[in-house]
Design a protein around this nucleic acid. Structure first.
Length: 415
RNA sequence: GUGGCCGUAGCUCAAUGGUAGAGCCCCAGAUUGUGGUUCUGGUUGUUGCGGGUUCGAGUCCCGUCGGCCACCCCA
């Protein structure tokens, strides 16, 4: 009972942690390439923040409780409401547009399933204060480039882009009152995921025209321009227009997109869109700014990496390399331990990754450890002192050097 | 939250209702200062937990917890 984590929560053993760190490193690296800056918010927020704007479907699944000060609080299920809150409070401190990214842990209380736990890590990238479509293009390009950085190609994933305005314009033309839009958009969003009869029932007289549009693909000048913008960057093969994408969250306004694996085996790898009204709504109109962003989670991404041989291999190689140590110090005579420790300290001060046996071990055992730790150099302290033996582990060549020349020899081999 | 399948060593899995096993991993050795191989030996189980049926339960029944899958939903 104490041996297992809570349902939906994960332990990250060294191998898992290495994968996680590498995912974070790629995320960070590419976001920085796009000149986004990193920020973060608190993992716990007032439940009200989510009740106010995300829509009921999220609130039902909140990991929430009452704290000791009688406050209704929730572990954050997503970052966007926090971002809107922070931006509304601090917007005058920054030049527009803001280009912010964040890597954090998010929570939901729900029965777990593949690709969906009670906790996951997410990259969020947002642009605040720019209404021009150029920002939408930049954001989608960033999302594509992040996946490319892992080694994924246009054979592995596709970004399906859509536009909520396409549907709200449609509903306006049909004289549908605004208070029914959310409900109808949800029905469209679920097309294909629920029985057709159920969608027909929800859409009523709109069913036939909606089905016709979904079948023909729909026409959107804005989406065409978005794809053109990506084409100019050579990224057109990664996107396709699909007005069937609506997304569940209520706060989205214009462009929305989701990323899927080409085999359609997994849930969405990433998703996002414009939320031009959210900051205004959360600040009760005090601050109003156009905004857009997307999120990418570590769980589905991790599964896709695992299933994509060439990406997985690349990642495993990076991990294996990053785990190797530079130098293993073999202590062949315990009388030399103090001298060895002195040298170890100097090596570490210079930034080398150094390991050695904490207790007396046989020499054979120590070389075996050196091998297993991936050491490129083994240094032997024994009867030779004040000389020592330096062994290049890849070639097997050994040389006797004086302790004064030691550092420069190590430097030569490890260069 | 609803339904189906499953739960045996750290991991992957065996065991017609009749004495709980294998491989991998891990640890220790193979005559005392040099490597991934090989060989030998060793540790680990209230068979998820709690009841019931039976002379006898890992095996059958009920409950419970956990996992997988589908539904629901999807940040």
């Amino acid at each position: 009972m104490f041996m297992q984590p809570l349902p939906g929560f994960r332990d990250f053993l060294p191998d898992d942690c290495a994968v996680r760190n590498l995912i974070f490193a790629r995320w960070r690296e590419v976001a920085r390439r796009y000149a986004f800056v990193e920020w973060d918010g608190p993992p716990l927020e007032a439940t009200e923040l989510y009740r106010k704007k995300s829509g009921t479907e999220i609130v039902d699944q909140l990991f929430n409780f009452t704290d000791k000060g009688e406050r209704e609080v929730a572990m954050r299920p997503e970052l966007t409401p926090t971002l809107a809150r922070v931006v509304a409070a601090h917007e005058r401190e920054f030049k527009k547009p803001l280009k912010w990214f964040s890597i954090g842990q998010f929570f939901r209380y729900e029965k777990q399933q593949r690709g969906r736990l009670r906790e996951h890590f997410q990259l969020n990238c947002d642009v605040i204060g720019e209404a021009n479509l150029a920002a939408d293009i930049e954001l989608v390009a960033l999302c594509i480039d992040i996946l490319r950085a892992f080694g994924f190609t246009d054979k592995d994933f596709v970004v399906r882009v859509s536009d909520r305005d396409f549907w709200t314009n449609f509903l306006r033309e049909k004289d549908i009152s605004g208070d029914r839009w959310d409900e109808l958009l949800q029905a469209i969003d679920k097309f294909g995921r629920e029985p057709r009869e159920k969608t027909v029932e929800k859409l009523g007289k709109l069913a036939d025209p909606v089905f016709a549009i979904l079948k023909s693909g729909g026409k959107s000048e804005r989406l065409d321009r978005l794809v053109d913008g990506l084409r100019a960057r050579g990224l057109a093969d990664f996107v396709s227009i699909d007005v069937g994408i609506v997304r569940g969250l209520a706060y989205y306004t214009g462009m929305v997109f989701e990323v899927f694996d080409r085999a359609a085996k997994f849930r969405a790898i990433a998703g996002g869109g414009r939320y031009d009204n959210l900051i205004g709504v959360l600040s009760d109109g005090a601050v109003s700014m156009p905004a857009l962003g997307f999120a990418m989670g570590d769980v589905v991404l991790g599964e896709l990496i695992n299933e994509t041989a060439h990406v997985r291999e690349k990642l495993e190689n990076s991990i294996a390399n990053s785990r190797k140590i530079d130098i293993y110090v073999v202590i062949a005579k315990e009388q030399c331990r103090a001298d060895a420790l002195g040298q170890i300290q100097q090596l570490r001060d210079r930034g080398y990754l150094v390991d050695y046996p904490l207790t007396s071990e046989k020499v054979g055992k120590q070389f075996q450890l050196a091998e297993q730790l991936g050491a490129r150099v083994a240094v032997l302290f024994g009867d030779e002192w004040p000389q020592l033996k330096l062994k290049d582990m890849s070639s097997g060549e050994q040389q006797l050097v004086s302790k004064d020349d030691f550092m420069s020899h190590v430097e030569t081999i490890l260069r």
